[in-house]
């Protein structure tokens, strides 16, 4: 690997544990390991997709990357600077360059504020004067396709698709370099989903944004991403190019996930890998490999040892004993 290569965003051994129970002395005794030792990097202008089922830690990872949550341990490099080491003021300055797009655009807007006020707010926070603000907002709502005469309306007067356009405009108002989108289309109807996905792609093309795109829907992730990371119970289990992930998924969970997605193609062969059982509780994950309880290929070693995060091919990382053994 090239030593001079510095990715735009680099995450090293990131962990976030949430306390869930206290013992009789009031000390935290039990934790949910929401994100447990995750490492990856994102290049400038790239879209990394994070996919996984509920409780896999993908949303927490997104919030950690923007430092909306403080990591329990690990480091987080953004444009060469470790966010975990920055002062409050420096972090606030950096916050301008990284923004979040929320799943539920209605809940992310203050119901008592007009769209106009909500759009002005982030710019005001960083001290932009009124004229610059108004100009920025005008360009933005043009770009996302909201007519400017709607600016004086309140959130409840818009449809879900329009609100998500406004949400996107608001997140982009500060001209960020990096955007985390947490299930931005999950709450939308299918005919609207495509509008938003295309809009996000067009904006990325125009302004060279770097995206972390989070979704439970592998087909949406596949459409949006250059590379895809698959998460399961707080761990990343596979990370590779989107083509490689679709054509030769290595981890058994990725394979099962791909096969479980209902495809709008009735004639398709219906040889599915049906996973048995359900996702275990993240408070008491299984020993060794977290996936072993549902894995059709689980061996004795899977219960004893956590699989290592290994680069099997160039840029294709997997954490699985079975795959790694077969490869040797």
């Amino acid at each position: 690997m090239n030593r001079d290569y510095k990715p735009f965003i680099r995450v090293d051994h990131l962990k976030k544990y949430f306390p869930v129970a206290k013992n009789w002395r009031g000390k935290n005794s039990q934790y949910v390991k929401a994100v447990d030792d995750v490492s990856f990097s994102i290049d400038k202008g790239e879209t990394l997709g994070l996919v996984g089922e509920s409780g896999c830690g993908k949303s927490t990872t997104g919030r950690l990357l923007l430092h909306l949550l403080t990591p329990t341990s690990g480091s987080l490099f953004f444009d060469g600077q470790d966010l975990t080491q920055l002062s409050k003021q420096a972090l606030w300055q950096k916050r301008r360059e990284m923004q979040f797009i929320f799943q539920d655009p209605y809940a992310a807007l203050n119901p008592r504020m007009t769209i106009q006020d909500s759009l002005h707010e982030p710019l005001k926070a960083y001290g932009e004067d009124k004229r610059t603000r108004s100009e920025t907002i005008k360009t933005l709502i043009d770009a996302v396709g909201i007519p400017s005469q709607y600016l004086n309306r309140y959130p409840h007067e818009f449809s879900g698709g329009q609100l998500q356009r406004i949400g996107i405009a608001r997140s982009l108002a500060l001209k960020p370099k990096f955007v985390v989108a947490d299930e931005p289309v999950a709450a939308l109807d299918m005919s609207i989903q495509a509008q938003i996905l295309n809009l996000m792609k067009e904006l990325q093309h125009a302004f060279n944004y770097t995206y972390l795109f989070i979704s439970h829907d592998l087909s949406v992730i596949d459409y949006m991403s250059d590379r895809i990371g698959v998460m399961y119970l707080g761990k990343m289990v596979e990370l590779t190019d989107r083509d490689a992930l679709y054509q030769e998924p290595l981890h058994p969970y990725t394979q099962a996930l791909l096969s479980a997605i209902p495809i709008a193609e009735p004639q398709r062969s219906k040889n599915k890998i049906m996973l048995k059982g359900e996702i275990p509780s993240p408070v008491h994950p299984p020993s060794g490999c977290h996936f072993r309880t549902r894995c059709p290929f689980a061996k004795a070693i899977c219960a004893e040892k956590e699989p290592e995060w290994v680069e099997m091919k160039k840029g294709h990382y997997v954490a699985c004993h079975v795959v790694q053994e077969a490869h040797q």
């Binding site: 449809s159 698709g161 329009q162 299918m190 005919s191 609207i192 989903q193 495509a194 509008q195 996905l197 295309n198 592998l218 087909s219 949406v220 596949d222 459409y223 679709y246 054509q247 791909l258 997605i261 495809i263 709008a264 193609e265």
Partner: peptide, 17 residues
């Protein structure tokens, strides 16, 4: 307007709502 895995085609959304 539905994304399909493995397909590189651009989605064609239905306009309006």
């Amino acid at each position: 307007s539905m994304p399909k895995i493995g397909s590189r085609k651009k989605l064609i959304p239905i306009s309006g709502h």
